[in-house]
Amino acid sequence: MTGGRVPAAGAGPEPLDRMAVSALTWLDGMRPCFRLPPDVTTDADPNTTLKPLGELAELSHLIRTHHPLPAVRDLADGLFRFAWRETGDGELFGDLIRGEPRATYPVELYGVFAQTGLSHPGVEELVRTMTGLRGWRVAREDHTRTLGVLNAERRIGLRHHADFDAVLAMTGLGRAVEPWTLDRKAAYGVTHDVFHLTDWGRAPHRMPADRAEYLRLWIPSWLESWLEEELWDLVGELLAVAACLPAPVPDAAAWRLLAGAQGADGAVPEIGAAPPPGTAAAEAFTACYHSTLVTAFAATLARIGPTRPAGPTAGVRRPVLESEAAS
C-alpha cells in the first residue's frame, strides 16, 4: 500500500477534507485529459470521452453544492463549469441526439446539467420529442441503467417513461440479492441502484427502510472483501453508499485504508498501487480518474452525513443563476 495520507483519527472531518481537496486538485490538473476530441459525435468511443466528462460533472456538482468548505466547493465549481463549457454550453447534446435518436446516454448526461438549471433551448425540444417516441418506452434489460434514465427524466422535468418502483424491484438492490453472491459487476450494480434511487445522496429519504437495513448489515462485509482486493474504486463507491443511507454507516478503518491508497499528488488508483512516477498523463488518468472522483464524492457525503439536504425538493431543477449563465 502506497501513499502516506493515512489519517490517525479515522474518518473525522479534517482527514476527509484533506482527501477531498487533494483529489480535486489532482483532477483539476487533469483537465486536458477530460477534454472532448473533435470526433466526439462521430467516431470517438463515448466510454472514454463522454463518460469521464459526465462523471466529472455529476460528482463535482454535488461537491460544489454540498461540501461545507468554500475551498472545496470552489475547486468542484471550477470543474463543473469546465465540463459544461466542453459541451459547447449544451449544444453537443443536440448533435448526439440527432446522431443516435434512441441512445439514452445523451439524455442522462444532459440531465446532470439540467438539474442545475443549465439548459439549451434546442436540446430541450429534441429531448422532449425523442423521449416521447414509442421506441423510448421499450423495456431495457439493464434495470440499473433504466433507473439512471428515469432519474435523468426527473431532473429534466419529463414524465417517467416507466414506473420507478417497478424498475427498482428488478435490480440487485430491489431484489436484495444474496449478499455472498455479489461479484464485482453485481456490486457496482448495487452501488448505482443506490445512487440513482437517492439522486447521488441528495435524497436519502427515498431509500426503503428494508433496503437500508439490508445495506447496513452487509456493507461492512463487502468493504472487507474489496479492501482485501485493493479495489479502491469500489471501496470508494461502497463508502459513498454507506453515507447515502438515511442513517449513515461510518467505517473509520475502511477510510484509513482508502486514505493510505491516495498518493501524495491526490490520485487514487482504481486497483492496487498507484502508477509509478514518470507514467504518462493519459495512462495515469485512465488508471486513476474515476476512483479519485469517487473518493472526493464519498468524502463529501461522509463529511456532511445526516446534515445534507433531504426531502421532496432535493435535486429539483432550479433557474439558472446569472453568474452561471455568464460563465
Rank of each mutant, 00 (worst) to 15 (best):
T42E: 13
A326H: 09
G117H: 06
H160F: 08
P32Y: 09
G135L: 09
P106K: 08
P269F: 01
H196T: 06
E58P: 02
A274W: 00
G189N: 13
W222K: 01
E178A: 14
P208E: 07
E125Q: 15
W200N: 15
F297H: 06
T48H: 13
F93V: 14
V167W: 00
E270H: 14
A326C: 10
V123H: 04
E270L: 09
S291Y: 00
Q262M: 03
L173C: 10
P7Y: 03
D95F: 06
M1G: 10
P277L: 08
R81V: 11
L147H: 02
L173T: 05
M1K: 09
G29H: 04
S327E: 12
V107R: 07
G122R: 15
L133E: 15
A302W: 00
A57F: 02
H67I: 10
R31F: 09
T181P: 03
T65M: 12
P13T: 06
R175K: 15
A162G: 07
K185A: 14
V194A: 08
F80C: 11
A152T: 06
A267D: 02
L79Q: 06
R145Q: 09
A254T: 00
L217V: 13
H290N: 04
A287F: 02
G4H: 03
G122L: 12
G122E: 13
V194W: 06
V112H: 04
T198R: 06
D89M: 10
L173P: 05
M1T: 13
L239D: 00
T286P: 02
P70V: 12
W222A: 02
T48V: 13
H290P: 02
T146G: 04
P37H: 06
T116V: 09
A254W: 00
R159G: 09
G135E: 11
A273Y: 03
R18G: 07
L96Q: 03
D142K: 12
P70L: 12
W136H: 10
A243D: 00
Y105K: 08
P277T: 08
D199S: 11
D165C: 06
R31T: 12
W232T: 01
P7F: 03
